[in-house]
């Protein structure tokens, strides 16, 4: 099982990874303004067009002031709740690590969005035939023996890719060798049953926008039994939950509409 180790203490904030993701996956740019978040962050949030996002956080670290980076993306859970919640197996966990989705199987119900404990899955409001979308860990590359695009782009090895157990050991080694530098926790090692994206940080993970209240047990244990009978009632529920998701994401949609309008004006 492959995994990615994100050690933001090595990150220099260049955002090669953010563009690498768009380049390889053919994702368009978003129309943004000034900064969408703290520091130089842009866009405001993950979206169907932005699968990974660097955050810039000003913080006091020990006795000195610092500027620390975080990288948001799909965590590629070992036992992904999104896959368990999917009535049509459109979300699939590959043995190699990536959690991928099959658009041909997707009903557009968006249960996965609600099930995801990291809230990384986004709906493609832009499309007439919409699907959910998220980071795939560049499964196409990984299955060909290559690194994900973002990892390859990283100049300082803040992102590394390899076998999960080797990276977990490496993460612990770094903490042990530099106990004052790191928070003594490998985020993703145990959260929701463990993930294939592991984080090291010099500041508490909440500060980088990660949830600290996640259980160690897989969410799949709850979602899967509940979801088994779903294909039979899928039409009704998908409408209902779709409405919920629409309400939650309507700000996204308004932004997209504005963007479409501007693009049309440009043309």
């Amino acid at each position: 099982m492959k995994a990615m180790l994100i050690d933001t203490t090595r990150c220099v904030g260049c955002r090669g990874c953010q563009v690498a993701c768009k380049q390889w996956n053919g994702l368009p740019a978003e129309e943004t303004q000034f900064f969408g978040g703290a520091g130089y962050q842009n866009p405001r949030d993950l979206s169907s067009k932005t699968w990974t996002l660097l955050t810039y956080n000003e913080a006091q670290v020990g006795d000195h002031y610092d500027w620390v980076y975080g990288k948001l993306q799909c965590m590629h859970c070992q036992e992904p709740a999104c896959a368990a919640s999917c009535p049509t197996s459109a979300m699939e966990k590959l043995a190699e690590g990536p959690v991928v989705y099959h658009t041909s199987r997707c009903l557009g119900c968006r249960y996965c969005m609600l099930a995801c404990p990291f809230q990384v899955i986004r709906f493609d409001w832009f499309s007439a035939n919409p699907y959910v979308s998220k980071c795939t860990m560049c499964a196409d590359r990984v299955l060909s023996g290559q690194e994900p695009s973002c990892v390859k782009s990283c100049p300082t090895d803040a992102l590394v890719f390899g076998d999960r157990e080797i990276l977990v050991a490496e993460a612990h080694r770094r903490i042990e060798e530099n106990p004052r530098k790191y928070v003594h926790h490998v985020f993703g090692e145990r959260e929701v049953g463990g993930t294939c994206v592991l984080h090291l940080s010099t500041v508490p993970f909440e500060l980088l926008g990660y949830r600290s209240d996640l259980p160690e047990k897989s969410l799949r244990r709850w979602t899967e039994p509940a979801m088994k009978p779903i294909p039979y009632i899928v039409a009704g529920l998908s409408l209902a939950l779709g409405a919920v998701a629409w309400i939650v994401s309507r700000r996204d949609k308004r932004m997209v509409e504005k963007w479409v309008k501007q693009v049309k004006e440009m043309q």
Binding site: M1, W24, G26, Q78, E92, K93, L94, A95, E96, G97, A139, D140, R141, L143, S144, D163, E165
Partner: peptide
């Protein structure tokens, strides 16, 4: 070794078919 380990960790099939690359 990794392959064996990954089999133990997941219920999915071990070797996914290669996907087309752009």
């Amino acid at each position: 070794g990794a392959l064996l380990a990954s089999l133990a960790l997941t219920t999915e099939s071990a070797a996914s078919p290669r996907l087309a690359l752009k």
